[in-house]
Structure formats: C-alpha cells, structure tokens
Design a protein around this nucleic acid. Sequence first.
DNA 1: GGTTGCCTTGACGTGTGCGTCAAGGTTTAG
DNA 2: CTAAACCTTGACGCACACGTCAAGGCAACC
Lengths: 128, 128
Amino acid sequence: MRIGELAKRAGTTTRALRFYESQGLLEAQRTSNGYREYDDHDLRLVREIQSLQAVGMSLEDTRPFVACLRAGHESGDSCPDSREVYQRKLAEVDECLERLQAVREFLLARLAFQDPCLVAEPKEFQCS
Amino acid sequence: MRIGELAKRAGTTTRALRFYESQGLLEAQRTSNGYREYDDHDLRLVREIQSLQAVGMSLEDTRPFVACLRAGHESGDSCPDSREVYQRKLAEVDECLERLQAVREFLLARLAFQDPCLVAEPKEFQCS
DNA sequence: GGTTGCCTTGACGTGTGCGTCAAGGTTTAG
DNA sequence: CTAAACCTTGACGCACACGTCAAGGCAACC
C-alpha cells in the first residue's frame, strides 16, 4: 500500500508518516516511480508508535519498541530495552503523580482559605 | 533598583524580566538614560509570577493574579478572576491525575505480564 | 489533452518561556 | 583614557511532533 492508504488505515496523516521516516522509525520500499510502498508489518509499527504516544511517550521512547518488532518479536515490549523504557516511564509517572498531588493540595487550600500564608508551596512542577 | 538587581533579588534573569514586560505582565519606569527602574512592588509581582509558574501555571494564567496585585489587593489570589484560574487549574490537575493513574496501571500491567493483550490502553494523555 | 487525485521533496510555521548572541550606549573605577 | 560592568533593542535558537503551503511529477479517467 502507498503512504495515503497507510495513513488512512492507521488513522494518521502522511505528514506524520514521513516524519517518522525522517526520524528513522519507519522505512519504506520505493516503487519505480519513487512512491513509498508499505505492508501490514509497517502498519503494525505505526500502531505501536501511536499506542505508545497515547500513554505519553515521546517518539524517542518508542524507538526500542519499534526495533523489537523489527527484530521479529511478536510484541514490541518483549525486549529488554523496551522494558527499561517502561520502567523509566513508570518512575516518571510516579514522580509526576506526587507533584500533581502536592499541587492539588495547594490549589484546594488556596481555594478554601483566603489566607495565603497558611499554605506552603509545592516544589517545582514539570510533568510531561 | 535596575533590572539586574531585580533579577538577582528574584532569582531570575534579566531576559525573563524583559520577556514578562513584553507580555504585559511587568511595567517599568524609565530613568533619563532609558534604563528600567523597579521598586519592591515589582519584586512582589515577579515573585507572584514565579510561585504560580512553580505550580504549573502558564504566564497567561498568572495575568489575573498580577492584575489583582496591581489593583492594590494584598494577595494576588483574592480576586474573582484569580480564583477562577485556581478552579480551572484544579480541574486540569484532577483530569491529569486520572489519566496518569490509568497510564500507571497500564505500565505496571505491561511490566508484570508479558501478554500485551491482557491490558487495555488508557485514553489519550496530555498533562501540562 | 485536460482534470483529478495521488505522490515527491523542501522549507517555513506552531506554542512556550525564555537562552544566547550581536551591536551598541552609559556609568563608574582606576 | 580606558576597561569593566552595567544597560538598551533586535533577532535568531531550542525542544517536539508534526501542520501547512509550494512547486512539481505520475497515473487514470473523460
């Protein structure tokens, strides 16, 4: 299939697919006229990328998963590198949850009391 | 005081202060040679901006608080617009917490079981 | 042969909060 | 007089994941 159909089947855009290719996440055969040609395996790769992005991972984070699928594994997260990413992400999420809880307490307190001196500020806040 | 001293006292940079001014958050008197001149009230404004940013607010979000201080209130969050921002932020934080929890469950499950089909994917994830 | 609908590469735009030069003016110390 | 340490405006850079033209090639249909 060509890039337009892959985009439609994956529910994305041709621009995104070309961008993935520019980032080395996706490869494509070329037909004689220069058109990109994809198969179902590529569709699988794109879906993997999308589902990982949906849980807050960057494209860089998806690299090991894509590599894992390319290496022939039936799921992208059965390789050590992928599981490392999971663990790192989990740690990030946990940290983010803590900060968000602190921010939440801060906001609740500020909304409840008018006195700003009663409420300590949370530490810095940077969640993906 | 001039911009350098204000920056030092607030623990920020002159670049940030000029940026705040370009965004209409900070104003400055000018001395005869064109230098910006600030007072303690401006320092208070900058500190307000910083503490709000620290809890994840954008510069745009800080606008009502700054206006509230400028209007003469002793705390930036005693005006209705500021409290609205608090409420909106609280809602955002709550939504973000839910999504992060779902992501956390997803990651934990993926790390525990090798079978990817057992785990449903969380919905889209976009936390500030 | 003209239109439509695909495809190609290239390059600039988006949002956020500044960082980092660049090129120059001002003030103070020596 | 000069060097250091301030200050000014202007403008480009960054990260991220693409969106959005622009200018053109290719294939099929009327």
